[in-house]
């Protein structure tokens, strides 16, 4: 393996890790702050990709897809919390698992209804369509660097919000001790609404920016869902920094696993999750919100 090839794989690993982090951070916040296990998270990722496809097809402008994805994601999340999740308060994981399973069926079938079963492509915007030559045979697409940039901006933004802002403090307080947070005047219901809306918007955004990287197809969120759960188990529930480490690890496993064991890449991911839980049955460090 040449140095350049290794370098390209490493970049791919990082780029995939950043997309995974966008998905996993929403998932881990939902779990850490609200205790909600959302198996439909992968389906929202697919929703994002189809939003990108539909917007580019309709308006021919990639840049519209970003605000469209964020707004639709926020709205979806708010509606789901307001009309579904808030009614499950005090219910067990079984209800959450099945509610999100019902949502998966609705979203998947809705997608088939509107877009059909054929995979679609989303064109890379012209300004990012170039490639940077690395050697005579290898080059690196600029769009992938753009994805990395979005991911890094997101990491910094959410990190700052959680660590420095009052909203971040309120989120951490609500995750740690719901009753005391309420006794201090925090409207926990509103916090939950915000967390669900933002958590789902992050995932939709991940789907939007991932759309031009590969094709847009039914069930494209399944793998991302399971991988982001592995990320959370690795990083600890509710921990954003843990999710970042977990995402990078999984990005490496995914990129290099596909090179060395093309048939067993999916295997490796599940085996990793099982291995972690065998060693630590209750997950790794259970820190929240930092």
């Amino acid at each position: 393996m040449s140095t350049f090839f290794f370098f390209v794989q490493l970049l791919n690993a990082i780029q995939y890790a950043l997309i995974l982090y966008l998905v996993a951070s929403g998932l881990t916040l939902l779990l850490g702050i609200m205790g909600v296990i959302n198996l439909a998270h992968g389906a929202f990722y697919m929703v994002g990709a189809y939003i990108a496809f539909a917007v580019v097809q309709q308006f021919g402008n990639f840049w519209l897809t970003l605000p469209a994805g964020i707004l639709i994601g926020l709205a979806l999340g708010a509606l789901i919390e307001k009309f579904l999740l808030s009614r499950l308060e005090g219910a067990d994981h079984l209800s959450q698992v099945l509610l999100s399973f019902g949502l998966i069926l609705l979203i998947n079938e809705g997608q088939r209804l509107i877009f059909g079963n054929d995979p679609h492509g989303v064109e890379v915007p012209k300004i990012l369509a170039a490639s940077i030559p690395l050697s005579n045979t290898l080059s690196y697409p600029v769009y992938r660097l753009f994805v990395c940039a979005v991911g890094i901006v997101f990491i910094i933004a959410i990190g700052l919000i959680m660590a420095k802002s009052r909203i971040g403090m309120m989120l951490r307080a609500s995750a740690e001790n719901r009753d005391m947070a309420r006794a201090m005047g925090i409207d926990v219901k509103f916090v939950y609404l915000g967390v669900t809306a933002v958590g789902i918007a992050c995932t939709v955004l991940a789907g939007v920016i991932a759309a031009p990287l590969a094709s847009v197809y039914p069930g494209m969120g399944d793998q991302v869902l399971i991988q982001s759960f592995v990320v959370i188990v690795l990083g600890g529930i509710g921990s954003l920094s843990g999710a970042l480490v977990g995402s990078l690890l999984l990005g490496l496993v995914d990129a290099f696993g596909k090179q060395f064991f093309p048939n067993y890449a999916a295997f490796l991911v599940y085996a990793a999750m099982i291995a972690v839980l065998i060693v630590r049955p209750q997950g790794l460090v259970r820190s929240r919100g930092t």
Partner: peptide, 20 residues
């Protein structure tokens, strides 16, 4: 002020105060 204090352990002293 509850019997077990129940301060937010994951927040610093300053954060515990200014958050409220």
């Amino acid at each position: 002020v509850p019997a077990g204090r129940e301060i937010f352990g994951s927040l610093s002293v300053r954060e515990n105060l200014i958050m409220c």
